[in-house]
Every structure is written in C-alpha cells, then in structure tokens.
C-alpha cells in the first residue's frame, strides 16, 4: 500500500515536471519549427540558480524559485531575440547555436559550482498520514505547484489573446502575420514563458531528486519524446504523453533493476513511434 501510494505520487510528480518542460519546448517547435537544444540547459540552470540562492545567499526557498523562474524567463527573451530570430528557417544554424548555448551553460555551472550532485532543500518537513500510508508534504507541494501551473498555462494558451495568437502562429504563421499579429513579439513571449516553466521545473526537480549539470540533456530528450509522441502541433496531447512517460519512468524501477528500468521507457517509445509515426494527436497528414 505504502509502495502503491508512493508510486502514484512519483508518476504524478514526474509527469507534471515532464509536461512543464515539454510545453515550453513545444511552443517554439510548433510555432516556428525551432529545435531549441538549449531548453534542457535552461531547465538545469534554473535549478542551480534556485539552489545557489537558497544555499549561498540564504534566500527564502519560495522567493528563490520565483527569482530563478524570472531570470530564466528573461534569458528566454534574449535567447529568442539573439539566437533564434536571426536564423528563422535555418535549421542548421539554430541547432548549432542551441548546442553552443547548451555547452556554455553546462560549462558555466561546472566551473562555478562543480560537478558534484546537489539538492535543493525541502520547503516543508513532515508527512501527511492517513492510516498506514504517509506522503511527505514536500512531494504533495511539488505536485500541487506543478499541477496548478499546468492548469494556468492551459488557460493562458486557450483563453487569452496572446495564447490564441500563439496557437494562430503555429497553425499558419503567414496568416498570423497578415492578421496583424506581431510574430516576433509573441515568439519572444512564448520563449520567455517556456524558459520560465523549465526553470521552475528545474527547481522543483532539484528538490525532488538531485541537481546535476547534465540533467538537462536527459530532460531535453524526454521533452522531445512527449512532443513527438503527442504529434506535432498538439498541445493537449503532451499532457497524455507526459502521463504515459511519467508512468513508465516511475513504475519501471519498481519492477526492474536500475539499468533495465532506464531502458524500458525508450523501447516502448520506439515501438509506439513505429506503430504511430505521427504520434497520437498529430495534425499533419
């Protein structure tokens, strides 16, 4: 019973974190076809900024997470303006610049904080108990923040003017420009929101698991898995694929040994992609 509840929470937490990061990646990918290879590094740096603020500067954890999110959102604006916008439509150079940013951020973290794994401290101590089962407040909080943010982002994309403009750009970029939508400004906004969400996920994951300078590489691949299996252009599908991948990642270690458990999800992904190459909710023919 204990195990079951713990696993369910693992599924929920991992899924919500994966979805947070993948949505940010999907915004730029769907709107402008940009393969943002720096996205994983943004997630990683967000976690480290939170860690540094709490551990070295003694900042309140909530404030630290907020600052980390805002800093990386600002970084997202810079990224869009100077690294992606000049090369719109040039796949090669966007990949190059993404790898470059990735290397710079990883190297900077390595040089400043060392390669040792670190963890953000808990924001909450204690356990919520019902009967024999107990769940740490920490995990509950992480999940609640993640879930709340996901609700907020879906509302933003569906209901607000800027969210609808983002959808319009991903459905027909030229039609969007001709409607008077400032494609550059909306893209910058999307990159800011996406980077902020990734940074926030980095902080939360850093307190749930550990921080490592290379954690972004793995998360980037997970984000790609979610976006591609959902189907290009589908935002809602990412929630479904996020739950699937989070489920696989959380349940596999319960059943299999470490390395085998790491392999299972990707074998499943390859099989699914072979059966449904365009993903579950893909829009293109």
């Amino acid at each position: 019973m204990e195990q079951v509840v713990a696993t369910i929470f693992n599924v929920l937490i991992l899924s919500s974190m994966y979805i947070l990061v993948a949505l940010g990646f999907a915004f730029l990918f769907n709107m402008l076809g940009i393969l943002n290879l720096a996205h994983g590094a943004v997630y990683m740096v967000g976690g480290y900024i939170g860690f540094a603020l709490i551990n070295s500067a003694g900042v309140n954890p909530w404030v630290a997470i907020l600052i980390a999110t805002l800093i990386m959102a600002g970084f997202g604006v810079v990224l869009e303006r100077f690294c992606f916008r000049p090369f719109t439509g040039d796949f090669n150079r966007i990949v190059m610049v993404g790898v470059g940013i990735n290397v710079v951020l990883q190297t900077a973290v390595n040089a400043l904080l060392g390669t040792r794994m670190q963890a953000l401290p808990s924001f909450f101590d204690g356990y919520l108990r019902f009967g024999v089962v107990s769940v740490s407040y920490q995990r509950i909080t992480i999940f609640l923040i993640g879930a709340a943010l996901l609700v907020l982002v879906s509302w933003f994309v569906r209901r607000t003017k800027h969210g609808q403009q983002m959808q319009a750009i991903s459905q027909d970029i030229e039609g969007a420009a001709l409607s008077g939508i400032n494609v550059h400004r909306v893209s910058a906004l999307a990159c800011a929101i996406g980077s902020g969400m990734a940074a926030l996920a980095g902080c939360l994951m850093g307190s749930y698991l550990m921080l490592s300078p290379y954690m972004g590489d793995l998360m980037l691949i997970k984000a790609l898995v979610l976006v591609i299996l959902a189907g290009i252009g589908s935002i809602g599908g990412i929630f479904v694929t996020g739950l699937i991948l989070g489920g696989l990642d959380a349940v596999a270690p319960v059943i299999f040994d470490g390395a085998v458990a790491d392999a299972i999800p990707y074998i499943v992904v390859v099989v699914v992609l072979l059966l449904r190459p365009r993903g579950f909710f893909g829009r293109e023919a």
Binding site: I221, L224, I267, V270
Partner: peptide
C-alpha cells in the same frame, strides 16, 4: 526522431 529515440534506446 525515429533515429533519435532508437539511439537513446
């Protein structure tokens, strides 16, 4: 993407 995911697998 197929190549990427197979590579990871």
């Amino acid at each position: 993407m197929g190549s990427l995911f197979l590579g990871v697998a």
